[in-house]
């Protein structure tokens, strides 16, 4: 139908622009030179060993993982409550309440970060991993609600009623029927909030205190040219990890759909 030529060129340029910088990451991560420039001078795994030897980096990775996992779990749990409430029950000022919960989605993050900082300092709270988790839960929750609401929405109400009718309590119905059926949504939600938290910079920068997260560490290291190849090595690992994580999530999602017999309406991949 299309003439093809121009569309193909457009697609090629688009994909190159999107992925070329990422392909450069492993290239320079294995390049035996401190300067990031062509031509490549030789193969080395030196940057990876150096990276693994850096205690500050290890600490940053650890902090980031703790923050990302906690934020994902807390935000998804809150998201489950909120989505369930908004899709199943009617309560006064529902629209307003849901709107306020979703607001951080569009609020400038720097404003959120600064306000949180001011409030926390005003309350005399010490900045730590906990304060970063707090901030990340705040920005992740709207995403989890967006994902989980659609999962809860597509659940036939009579499935719950059938379970009550067959003798189950509301709690056991939730466990036996609702939870398994929204599980793909929950996994998506965990994964997306994990990813958001992992690469979030502004809030982490403001609220981390003396416990930098990975993005904050990377930012601080970029001032030293000698550290750049190590960052490249780190980036390579992160990209591989993301691809792996996404693949696992997609496998779970497809398996969930096959199990419940639903139609595949698209996912991450």
């Amino acid at each position: 139908m299309f003439k093809g030529g121009w569309f193909k060129l457009y697609a090629l340029v688009y994909l190159t622009f999107l992925y070329a910088p990422i392909i450069l990451l492993p290239l320079f991560a294995f390049n035996d030179a401190t300067v990031i420039a062509f031509p490549l001078s030789g193969f080395t795994t030196h940057w990876f060993t150096e990276m693994l030897a850096d205690p500050t980096l290890k600490q940053a990775v650890k902090n980031s993982l703790i923050i990302a996992v906690s934020s994902a779990v807390i935000a998804t749990t809150l998201g489950i409550f909120a989505s369930r409430a908004s899709t199943r029950y009617e309560f006064p000022a529902k629209g307003g309440i849901m709107g306020l919960i979703m607001l951080p989605l569009v609020l400038p993050e720097i404003i959120v970060a600064v306000s949180l900082l001011v409030v926390l300092l005003g309350l005399g709270v010490n900045l730590s991993i906990l304060t970063v988790i707090l901030g990340h839960v705040l920005i992740c929750t709207p995403f989890t609600i967006a994902i989980l609401s659609s999962a809860f929405q597509s659940l036939d109400k009579s499935l719950e009623e059938a379970a009550y009718d067959l003798g189950e309590t509301p709690a056991s119905t939730f466990r036996l029927i609702i939870l398994p059926l929204v599980m793909p949504g929950i996994i998506s939600s965990l994964l997306i909030s994990f990813t958001i938290s992992l690469d979030e910079f502004i809030i982490a920068f403001f609220l981390a205190g003396t416990e930098p997260t990975l993005p904050v560490y990377i930012f601080s290291q970029f001032r030293f040219p000698s550290a750049v190849p190590v960052i490249m090595a780190l980036g390579t690992i992160l990209v591989c990890l993301s691809i792996l994580l996404l693949t696992i999530a997609e496998i779970f999602r497809r398996r969930g759909i096959a199990k419940s017999g639903g139609k595949d309406t698209g996912g991450f991949l």
Partner: peptide
Amino acid sequence: ANKRPTNMVFQSYAIFPHLTVEENVGFG
């Protein structure tokens, strides 16, 4: 509803999609 001596066949049948036929029938 879960304490009443009644059972219902729903308009949409409300078959639990993640269970087998056997598990559905034996659910109660």
